[in-house]
Design a protein around this nucleic acid. Structure first.
Length: 794
DNA sequence: ATCCTGATTTTTTTT
DNA sequence: AAATCAGGAT
C-alpha cells in the first residue's frame, strides 16, 4: 500500500529490514519470531521451518533493538547445526554476529568452565574425556575395587554413572537412592571414578553439564554474570534435553519449577541483591514426537511440562509442513498416532499427494543393498543428482554392506557419523600427546602414549609409575619425570622413562611459549618418534595413518589461522577436538568421499554425493529421496530397545526417518540378516503395518531366492553360515550374479579376499575360471583359478 | 617386554 | 566378521 511516492514518510530502512525479515513467514512462524519478552514454547512439527524461525527470531531480536549480539545464547544439538545456524544468522544480519554464543550445550559449558575452572578445583587446562576414555577410567576404577568385570561390564557401569550425572546426582546421592546390589556397586565405582577424574584434572562429557550447574549453584556471582549477560536464551531440539541441561537453563533464565529464585530472591534469602529479576527470556523449539535420545538421559517431560514450568508462557504451534508430500505426511501421522501421550499435532502440506511409498522385502541384507543401489541408479538415470538421495539405517554396523554395494557400482557417497576421524588410533595418540603437554595430570593420555610408539615402557613399569604417583598424590608427569624414585623399576625402564620424559619436557617448554598448535603438533610427531615408527613399519596401513596425521596437522593449521591472538590456543584446540562429534563431519559435505580412495572418488562433478547415516543422525536433515533400510522387527524397533520398553522411542525414531523424505520414500527389509557373523531370520517391522496400505506400493515377494530354478540354491541356502565362504552368497545373488552352477563368479573391479594373500581387487577375467587379482598387501598381481583359489568376495 | 594365538565379546542410538 | 582381551611362549 505504501509503495510509490507518498506524503507519509517512507518506511525507514530499519522498518524495511524488519518487514523483510517477516516476509514469507506464515502466521504462527511470525508470532514466534516477533514474540517479545518472556517464555516461549515453539512446538515445531517435522519440516515446519523451525530453523528458519529460530534464525529469524535471532535476527529480529537484534534488528528490533531488543538484544545485542553478545546478549544472545542459542543452543543447538550438534556443532554442525550450530555452524549452519551461524551461517544463516550471519547472512540475515550481514555479519553482525560477533559476540553471539551459538553452540551446543557442551561447548558452551566447556567455555564457561574454562573461565572459572579454579573455582571448582580444576585448572583451565583440564582435559575432556570422551566416552571411550570414560569407559577406560570406569574399568580401572572397577579393577581397583576388585569388581568382577564379567558380572558387570565397564560399559554398563559407566552408563549408570552417566545417567546419575545427567540427573545431577553424585555418588552418595546415587547410593542413598537405595537400589539393588548392582546400584551399590555402581555407587562405589562412581566414587572412585570421580576421585580419579579430579586427580587427572579431567572431566567427562556429563561433567561439562554437571559442573557448570554446580559452579552456578555454588557461586551466585558467576550465575548472575551469565544470567545478566544472556538476555535471550534460545534452545533448539528441546525435547532432547536432559535434567542437567534443564537445570542449567533454569539457572540462566530464572523461574520455572525447582529454581532457587524463591529462596534467593525472597527477603532474608542469601542476602545478595535480592532485587534481581530473572528475565525468563527463554525460547525453546522442539517436537515431542522426535524425542529419540532417551538412552542418554533426555527427558521428554522437559518439553511436555514447559507450560507447567512457565504458566505464563506463550505457545506457538507450527503444523504446516513445507517439506514432504501428503502421502509421506499421512504415513507419518498414522505412525505416530500409535504412541500414547504427547502433544497432538497433525502435519499437513500443500505439496500434493506425490508418489506412493515403496515397500520392498528382500532375501537378505546383501540383496537389500543391491536393491537399494539399483533404485539409486534408476533415480540417477532419470536425472536425480546424488546429493538428493539418502540411505538411513538403524545401527552403524549396517552401513558396511551398503557401502560395499556402492563401491562395487562406483557410486560416490559419504557416511555421516561413522568413520570417526578423531576416533582413529593415531589421531587419538597425537591428541593424547598434546593433552599431556597441556595437562600434566592427564593419566589416561599418559598411559596411552608412554609406550606408543614402543619404547620399552611396558605395562608393569607403567603400573608402578601410576601407583607411585597415587601414593604420593602427585601428577603422573612428576612421578614419571623422576623415574629413579619410582620403586621397583628396572634399570632399563628407568632409562626408557627418562629419555621419554626428557623429550616431553622439551616439548612442554615449547608448548608454554607462544607457539602455533600446528608447529607444536609437528614437533610432537617427529620428536616422539611417532612418525618414524610408522615409516619403519612400511605398510599400507602405516602409510594411511601418516596421511591421517597429515590431515590432523591441516586441521591444526586451519585452527591456528582462525584463532584469535592471545588466546590459549592449545587449550582451545583440544577443547574443539574433544567436542567435535563424529556427526559433525570433518570434511564438509560435498568433499570427495573418504574411504577407498579412487574407487568411490568419482564425485568430481556437481552432483554431490549420496549420503548414508543412522536414523539418529538423520534428525534435522531432509532429502528428496530417502531409503530406510532394515525395516525389520529387532532392527527398527531394536530388540534391545524392546527389552527395555522403548518401543515408543523406536517409533519416534522411525517417524524421524520417514519425515526426512521430501518426495519419495523407500522402505526395505530383509528376511534374513547376518548378525555377529551368523544368520538371523526376522519379521518385517511392525511399523510397516502401521502405515495405511493405500499409501504404499511394492512387492512383498520381490527378490525371491535366486529368481531362477529353485534348485540353484540347493542345500546351501539353509546353512546360512559364513566361514564356509561365498557358497550361499553366490547362490542367493540377484540376477546379475546368477550364472554358473555352483562356482563363485567374480567380476572385474570386485573386491575379494584370499585366504593367504588377503584383500585384493579383480583386475581381469581370462575366461575358463582364470582370474587376475591385485592384492593390497603387497601390490602384487596374481593369476588364479577362481574355483580352487581360496577366494571369497570382500 | 613383546609377540602371538585363541577365546570372548560385540551392535543401538551420541554430545 | 571384526575387534578386543587374556594367557602363554619367546
Amino acid at each position: 500500500m505504501s509503495s510509490g511516492p507518498s506524503l507519509e514518510s517512507p518506511p525507514s530502512p530499519h522498518e524495511a529490514r524488519l518487514e523483510g525479515l517477516l516476509a514469507g513467514l506464515n502466521v504462527p512462524q511470525r508470532d514466534a519470531v516477533t514474540h517479545g519478552e518472556g517464555p516461549l514454547l515453539i512446538l515445531a512439527g517435522a519440516g515446519s521451518g523451525k530453523t528458519r524461525v529460530l534464525t529469524h527470531r535471532i535476527a529480529y531480536l537484534i534488528f528490533s533493538g531488543r538484544a545485542r549480539p553478545h546478549e544472545i545464547l542459542a543452543i543447538t544439538f550438534t556443532n554442525k547445526a550450530a555452524g549452519e545456524m551461524r551461517g544463516r544468522v550471519e547472512r540475515l544480519l550481514s555479519g553482525h554476529t560477533r559476540g553471539m554464543w551459538l553452540s551446543t550445550f557442551h561447548s558452551a559449558c566447556a567455555r564457561i568452565l574454562r573461565a572459572h575452572a579454579e573455582r571448582l578445583g580444576y585448572t583451565k587446562q583440564f582435559t575432556i574425556y570422551d566416552q571411550a576414555d570414560a569407559r577406560r577410567l570406569a574399568k580401572r576404577s572397577m579393577e581397583e575395587l576388585g569388581v568382577d568385570p564379567k558380572r558387570y561390564t565397564p560399559a554398563a557401569v559407566q552408563n549408570r554413572i552417566s545417567q546419575a550425572k545427567n540427573l545431577l546426582l553424585d555418588a552418595e546421592d546415587y547410593r542413598s537412592l537405595g537400589g539393588g546390589h548392582f546400584e551399590q556397586i555402581v555407587a562405589d565405582v562412581y566414587g572412585v571414578y570421580e576421585r580419579e577424574l579430579e586427580r587427572a584434572n579431567a572431566m567427562d562429557f556429563d561433567d561439562l553439564l554437571l559442573l557448570t550447574v554446580k559452579l552456578m549453584e555454588r557461586h551466585p556471582d558467576v550465575r548472575r554474570f551469565y544470567a545478566d549477560s544472556f538476555r535471550h536464551v534460545l534452545v533448539d531440539e528441546y525435547q532432547d534435553t536432559n535434567h542437567a541441561q534443564y537445570r542449567l537453563l533454569q539457572l540462566l533464565v530464572g523461574g520455572g519449577a525447582g529454581a532457587p529464585e524463591g529462596a534467593e530472591g525472597s527477603p532474608g534469602g542469601a542476602g545478595e541483591r535480592p532485587q534481581e529479576r530473572p528475565h525468563r527470556n527463554l525460547a525453546v523449539v522442539g517436537d515431542d514426537a522426535q524425542s529419540v535420545f532417551g538412552f542418554r538421559g533426555a527427558d521428554v517431560r522437559n518439553i511436555l511440562d514447559f507450560q507447567k514450568d512457565f504458566p505464563d508462557s506463550t505457545v506457538v504451534k507450527l503444523e504446516q509442513n513445507y517439506r514432504s508430500t501428503q502421502t509421506i505426511l499421512r504415513a507419518a501421522n498414522a505412525l505416530i498416532a500409535n504412541n500414547r501421550g504427547g502433544m497432538p499435532k497433525e502435519l499437513w502440506s500443500e505439496l500434493g499427494d506425490g508418489e506412493p511409498i515403496q515397500v520392498s522385502e528382500l532375501d537378505d541384507e546383501h540383496a537389500e543393498a543391491r536393491f537399494v543401489v539399483g533404485e539409486v541408479e534408476r533415480l540417477m538415470s532419470s536425472g536425480v543428482p546424488r546429493r538428493e538421495i539418502a540411505i538411513f539405517y538403524r545401527t552403524n554396523a549396517m552401513s558396511r554392506v551398503i557401502e560395499d554395494a556402492l563401491v562395487r557400482r562406483e557410486l560416490a557417497y559419504q557416511v555421516i557419523g561413522a568413520a570417526k576421524f578423531y576416533d582413529r588410533a593415531e589421531v587419538k595418540d597425537a591428541v593424547a600427546y598434546l593433552s599431556l603437554l597441556a595437562n600434566p595430570r592427564d593419566v589416561l593420555s599418559f598411559t596411552r602414549i608412554a609406550n606408543t610408539p614402543r619404547r620399552g615402557i611396558g605395562q608393569t613399569s607403567l603400573a608402578r609409575v601410576l601407583a607411585h604417583a597415587a601414593s604420593l598424590d602427585e601428577s603422573v608427569w612428576d612421578a614419571a619425570a623422576e623415574p629413579e624414585r619410582v620403586p621397583g623399576l628396572t634399570a632399563a625402564a628407568v632409562r626408557a622413562l627418562r629419555s621419554f620424559m626428557d623429550t616431553m619436557a622439551e616439548l612442554r617448554e615449547r608448548a608454554a611459549g607462544p607457539v602455533a598448535v600446528a608447529d607444536l603438533l609437528g614437533a610432537v610427531l617427529s620428536d616422539s618418534g611417532y612418525v618414524r615408527a610408522l615409516e619403519a613399519e612400511d605398510t599400507i596401513e602405516a602409510e594411511g595413518r601418516i596421511e591421517n596425521l597429515e590431515q590432523l596437522l591441516e586441521v591444526a593449521r586451519e585452527f591456528d589461522a582462525s584463532a584469535e591472538a592471545g588466546e590459549d590456543t592449545l587449550d582451545a584446540f583440544l577443547q574443539q577436538v574433544a567436542l567435535t562429534a563424529s556427526a559433525d563431519q570433518l570434511g564438509q559435505p560435498g568433499a570427495p568421499p573418504g574411504e577407498e580412495d579412487g574407487l568411490a572418488g568419482m564425485g568430481e562433478d556437481d552432483q554431490g554425493v549420496l549420503t548414508l547415516m543412522t536414523l539418529h543422525n538423520a534428525k534435522g536433515t531432509e532429502f528428496p529421496h530417502v531409503f530406510i533400510t532394515g525395516c525389520e522387527d529387532g532392527v527398527i524397533p531394536h530388540s534391545r530397545a524392546l527389552e527395555e520398553g522403548g518401543l515408543e522411542e523406536e517409533r519416534r525414531l522411525f517417524y524421524v526417518g520417514v519425515t526426512r523424505a521430501m518426495r519419495e520414500l523407500y522402505l526395505s527389509s530383509a528376511r534374513r540378516r547376518a548378525m555377529y557373523g551368523t544368520g538371523v531370520y526376522g519379521l518385517r517391522s511392525r511399523f510397516l503395518d502401521e502405515i495405511p496400505e493405500e499409501l504404499t506400493t511394492g512387492s512383498e515377494t520381490r527378490g525371491r531366492l535366486g529368481g531362477g530354478p529353485l534348485g540353484a540354491l540347493g542345500g546351501a541356502g539353509m546353512s546360512f553360515r559364513t566361514g564356509s565362504a561365498g557358497a550361499w552368497q553366490a547362490a542367493s545373488g540377484g540376477a546379475a550374479e546368477r550364472r554358473g552352477a555352483g562356482a563363485v563368479q567374480f567380476r572385474v573391479g570386485e573386491d575379494v579376499v584370499h585366504g593367504s594373500f588377503g584383500e585384493g581387487v579383480v583386475t581381469s577375467l581370462q575366461g575358463d575360471g582364470v582370474i587376475v587379482v591385485r592384492f593390497a598387501s603387497d601390490g602384487s598381481e596374481r593369476t588364479l583359478l577362481a574355483e580352487y583359489a581360496n577366494l571369497s568376495r570382500g
